[in-house]
Design a protein around this nucleic acid. Structure first.
Length: 443
RNA sequence: GGAGAGAUGGCCGAGUGGUCGAAGGCGCUCCCCUGCUAAGGGAGUAUAGGCUCAAAAAGCUUAUCGAGGGUUCGAAUCCCUCUCUCUCCGCCA
């Protein structure tokens, strides 16, 4: 959420900066609502002040035993007038709030301008793609031939965009998550956190998924839709829980409505969770394989930082995610997303893209963003600054990494001519010493 | 699932219709006193808005006592709904 003060005083500048992100801010509507809000709020508060003063007088008069009927008749219709004004004001505030809640964050000055992902800027590359002297298979072919990856069974259980992994592959998947968590808590100073996978609407509003992107989420009603309360309470947040689309949501919302002591900053959290996404807008995209699933695991990194330190924190966050790929010896590149390619809440985003031989391309495996105060303002997440006053924090998040996609990268980059897959050396201890996935070993 | 108790400022805690944004205490900040330390005296100490103002400062003002409704001229206080916490019983991975 943007700062409404800033919008009032610097509207044209902000609107033009949002245009660079491909967002058209409703300037006229905002101005008109603001003008109305101003006059009606002033009017409302005058009426409230009058009511308060009069009521106080009545109290004093009654204590003295004086007759109050004169004062009472004087403000007889104040109540109705006030109620009407309050209703109008509330209506306007809601509309303004709606605009604020659906306006994306402003891009940081260092973000490259652009109209599509083609305008993203490559920052650096690490490693070089392996040369193959046999026909490269994609991860689906590799996994299915090893009989460790089973989309047919997954479809029977749940439908498209789900997967079933077995044997060594399931274990490798688990090993990856463990390895990532261990690296972040032991080498990068993160606090491991276990979080709920179902969260309330306030959380999703806090991180920016709601109200704009509800169609991307899965919703869970207690007792399902036949729940006796669901008919009446459908619109209320209380009976609606959403499956988390990323652990960013619960991790970041841990500081919602909190004031964090300065000396505790930065907070660095890591969690391994499943993520659930409806992928409503991506029909026909990445339909093959593990790349785009309704359910996938991710190890998520979140920083809660002092505003002056958040851009330094972003660089650290990216380097922490990169470290995982380096240890796994997977080639990757780091991209600075351009203005039009960034997510709703981000002020600046780096994507890490891993090399996938079968696609002959780098594909996103991590996205690391500094949201500055955008989420913190929605969440009222603050710290006590040097003057002792509460001030909005900066929040950052990044994948460290997406486990499913990392698995894809390992299968494809470590595939062998005989159809087996060697296991990266850092993972072998997590696999009971196993160094290779084979058909025989998968049983 | 059954029975009961509760939710007040950074913390503890008083407050059951009227100058209550809220006593008192702790903590914190500043000042005074004091060889040092300890003790003592005084002042201050919530948050988010709005308006005035070029701006700062300041002033005026509104809202907030778990959340949302209601009653009332007036609600921390009364009524309703919800959420959460605690105690006891039952059930349970």
């Amino acid at each position: 959420m943007l700062d409404i003060q800033q919008l009032r005083t610097d509207l044209e500048n902000i609107a033009s900066r949002l245009t660079k992100r491909g967002y058209t801010f409703p300037v006229m509507q905002f101005n008109s609502l603001e003008a109305q809000r101003k006059s009606i709020q002033t009017h409302t508060q005058e009426l409230q002040a009058k009511r308060n003063a009069t009521s106080r007088q009545i109290g004093i008069a009654k204590q003295k035993g004086e007759d109050v009927t004169a004062i009472m008749t004087e403000i007889a219709h104040l109540g109705d007038e006030l109620k009407q004004a309050e209703n109008q004001l509330e209506h306007l505030q809601t509309e303004l709030q709606q605009i604020l809640l659906t306006t994306p964050n402003l891009a940081h000055d260092s973000v490259p301008e652009g109209n599509s992902e083609a305008d993203n800027l490559e920052i650096r590359r690490w490693g070089s793609p392996r040369l193959f002297d046999f026909a490269i298979k994609d991860h689906v072919a590799i996994g299915e031939q090893l009989r460790l990856l089973d989309f047919e069974t997954a479809a029977k259980l749940s439908g498209a965009r789900f997967n079933v992994m077995k044997g060594g592959l399931a274990r490798l998947h688990r090993a990856l998550a463990q390895f990532m968590l261990d690296t972040h808590i032991q080498e990068h100073g993160y606090t491991e956190v276990y979080v709920p996978y179902l969260v309330n609407a306030d959380c999703l509003r806090g991180t920016g998924q709601l109200p704009k992107f509800e169609e991307d989420l899965f919703i869970a009603h207690p007792g399902g839709n036949s729940h006796p309360d669901s008919a009446i309470l459908t619109d209320q947040d209380s009976c609606k829980l959403h499956l988390i689309p990323t652990a960013e949501v619960p991790l970041t919302n841990m500081v919602r409505n909190e004031i964090i002591p300065r000396e505790q900053l930065p907070l660095k959290f890591v969690a391994h969770t499943p993520c659930f996404r409806s992928e409503a807008g991506s029909y026909g995209k990445d339909t093959r394989g593990l790349i785009r699933q309704h359910q996938f695991d991710k190890v998520e990194l979140v920083h809660i930082a002092h505003p002056q330190e958040s851009y330094e924190a972003l660089e650290q966050l990216v380097s922490h995610a990169e470290k995982i790929l380096q240890k796994l010896e997977l080639p990757y590149r780091v991209m600075a997303l351009c203005t039009s390619d960034m997510g709703f809440s981000a002020a600046k985003t780096y994507d890490i893209e891993v090399w996938l031989p079968a696609q002959n391309a780098y594909r996103e495996i991590s996205s690391c963003s500094n949201c500055e105060a955008f989420q913190a303002r929605r969440m009222q997440a603050r710290f006590r600054n040097e003057k002792g006053k509460p001030e909005l924090l900066h929040t950052l998040n990044g994948s460290g990494l997406a486990v499913g996609r990392t698995l894809v990268a390992i299968l494809e980059n470590y595939q062998q001519a005989d159809g087996s897959v060697t296991i990266p050396s850092v993972l072998q201890s997590y696999m009971g010493g196993l160094d290779r996935l084979t058909i025989e070993g998968g049983k």
